[in-house]
């Protein structure tokens, strides 16, 4: 993603120039303080990040023991409830995770339905050239029963989507989509974790490391309208809560080291925040 950098040029330089030209005394107390900001959109941020694919996150949860539970995903019928672009993008991410969740659990008919929903929302948010491919469903049908081929197809769609967004300087859209995908993945993971606390809680804590960058991605969206600000607030609430846990405060800041082991109470608090965040995304009218 192209990040804007701000070259703040204090007017000190200008004031020095003016002094040299015989202008007024720059040290005068009533000298207006002016700051000129130049945004160079062609230079990347000094600290950048690359977020994983939703299907990889779903795989990580599956490796940790996540099982498929029917009825947990966002119903496809909800896709017509999203009128704002931000909600369409967030739920494009939610449905991308649901598609991956179904595909890796060999629920091919459900996956097929979610692929159609992803195509529909993807077209609505301006990704026609990626999702208008009429042969996508046909390719999917051709590979029904071949889980690996279906997964390849999903990775391929993500690749095309990334390329389109990057070519058109629209990477900030991907950040919003990812936020929805992350929230849905965490929701599915945390909900199932009560059956397999030991392994799934490690996967959940691992994926919490994405939250700070997810928020950065949302904050990079050029249109900070009220809905987006409210969504950022929901994500920030999860992060603040998590970072306030004693076990997290004591843990090594290097996330390659042993992940913090949340207490039962901390885990319940986090679960409650994640459920609230996810519901605020899939049912925006309630927020």
């Amino acid at each position: 993603m192209l990040m804007k950098i701000q070259l703040s040029i204090p007017i000190v330089a200008g004031a020095l120039l003016l002094s040299a030209c015989g202008g007024e005394d720059a040290s005068k107390k009533d000298q207006p303080k002016v700051e000129v900001t130049v945004e160079d959109a062609s230079v990347s941020a000094d600290d950048d990040f690359m977020l994983p694919q939703p299907i990889s996150l779903a795989h990580a949860f599956k490796n940790a023991g996540l099982t498929y539970v029917s009825g947990k995903t966002n119903p496809i019928s909800n896709k017509n409830n999203y009128s704002k672009k931000i909600d369409q993008l967030l739920n494009l991410g939610v449905y991308s995770t649901d598609l991956a969740y179904c595909a890796i659990n060999n629920k091919t008919q459900e996956a097929r339905n979610y692929l159609a929903a992803v195509q529909d929302l993807g077209t609505k948010v301006g990704l026609e050239s990626v999702f208008s491919d009429k042969t996508l469903i046909a390719k999917f049908d051709k590979n029904l029963g071949d889980q690996s081929a279906l997964e390849e197809l999903i990775y391929d769609i993500q690749d095309k989507s990334d390329a389109y967004l990057q070519d058109n300087d629209l990477r900030y859209l991907a950040a919003v989509e990812f936020a929805g995908a992350w929230a849905e993945g965490m929701y599915l993971g945390i909900d199932d974790s009560r059956k397999n606390v030991e392994n799934l809680s490690v996967a959940i804590v691992d994926q919490m490391t994405l939250l700070r960058n997810t928020i950065k991605g949302l904050e990079g969206h050029p249109s900070q309208d009220a809905r987006l600000k409210s969504v950022i607030g929901m994500f920030q609430d999860v992060l603040t809560t998590y970072e306030g846990f004693e076990t997290v405060k004591k843990a090594n800041k290097n996330v390659n080291f042993k992940a913090p082991e949340l207490t039962a109470q901390e885990f319940d608090t986090l679960a409650s925040k994640i459920v609230s965040l996810r519901n605020g995304i899939v049912s925006p009218a309630q927020k």
């Binding site: 993603m1 192209l2 062609s42 230079v43 990347s44 950048d48 690359m50 977020l51 994983p52 694919q53 990889s56 997964e151 390849e152 990775y155 391929d156 993500q158 690749d159 990334d162 990057q166």
Partner: peptide, 10 residues
Amino acid sequence: RYEGSKVTYY
């Protein structure tokens, strides 16, 4: 499998 790409401009 494609995981992502990043072009760093400077």
